[in-house]
Amino acid sequence: MSETAIQAAAETPPASPMRGYWRSVFARLGRDPITLCFAVVVLAIVLAALAAPLIAPFDPYQQSIIGRLKPPGWRGHPLGTDELGRDLLSRLLYGGRISLLMGLAPVLIATLIGGTLGMIGGFAGRLANTAIMRTMDVFYAFPSVLLAVAISGAMGGGIGNGILSLSLVFTPAMCRIAETASAQVKHLDYIEAARASGASAARILRHHVLGNVLGPVLIYASSLVSVSILLASGLSFLGLGVQPPEPDWGLMLSTLRQSLYVDPLGCALPGIAIFTTSVCFNLLSDGVRRAMDVRA
């Protein structure tokens, strides 16, 4: 018997060489030039923001009465100036630091908290599920902008409170998505088999459920980055988030908006920055999710 069985094994085509999961993910990423392009752009944006003090040609706070809303190239300002005569490129570079922080930090926090709660809620029994999901529903009941405004308003302005309130806004939706994904795999045979092998719930969650939850959660998280940047700018606009004169893409967008007819390019620049960043994050995470799918 075993001979025929071994034969059965030998005659099938050889598999890919042995390698770890993450190494194979990176190998698949390496074969996806489009995703790599987006990764490079995201990396460039992040590096530019981080290195702003080193590469910014001007002081982002330096105002000039005569140099307001000047076109690119005016007196060495590569992208021109804003409505207070400050160098636009420098403000965009510095603004990237705050905007990326406001875009990424709340999403990250919400993903961690909401994702974990949702995964547990989907996998756990009815009682824990009800407790977690009904709590989330309470937050769901408010429109997200209103909720963010209310929380920021109650706690006061500032970047820290802005991040906190946005995290709270994103957590319930994230939780719901993780819960759905987790509940879907809960009754699959391989989870039952893992239970039958005596593994603890934590172990099953980590090894068998996490991988299935990660995909949809990552996709959703990446789409939230741009929402988060815009919501943060909304908060700033209301005086609840970033305070002027701090450079922030969202804040810049809302102040430059009044000069739309005078300086359309300068007005569009922060919007282009937000758009590029969010699209690149979106497509990058899409590519990463594809690379993480072993069946592809």
Binding site: Y21, D189, S197, A199, H208, N212, M292
Partner: peptide, 25 residues
């Protein structure tokens, strides 16, 4: 189990699926 496909974690090399029980033990 009956469903040979559903009873294996699609994201795990089969060697790890087999080793899962002993590791947990």
């Amino acid at each position: 189990f009956q469903d040979s496909a559903a009873s294996l974690n699609p994201r795990m090399p089969v060697r790890d699926s087999i080793a899962f029980g002993p590791l947990a033990a």
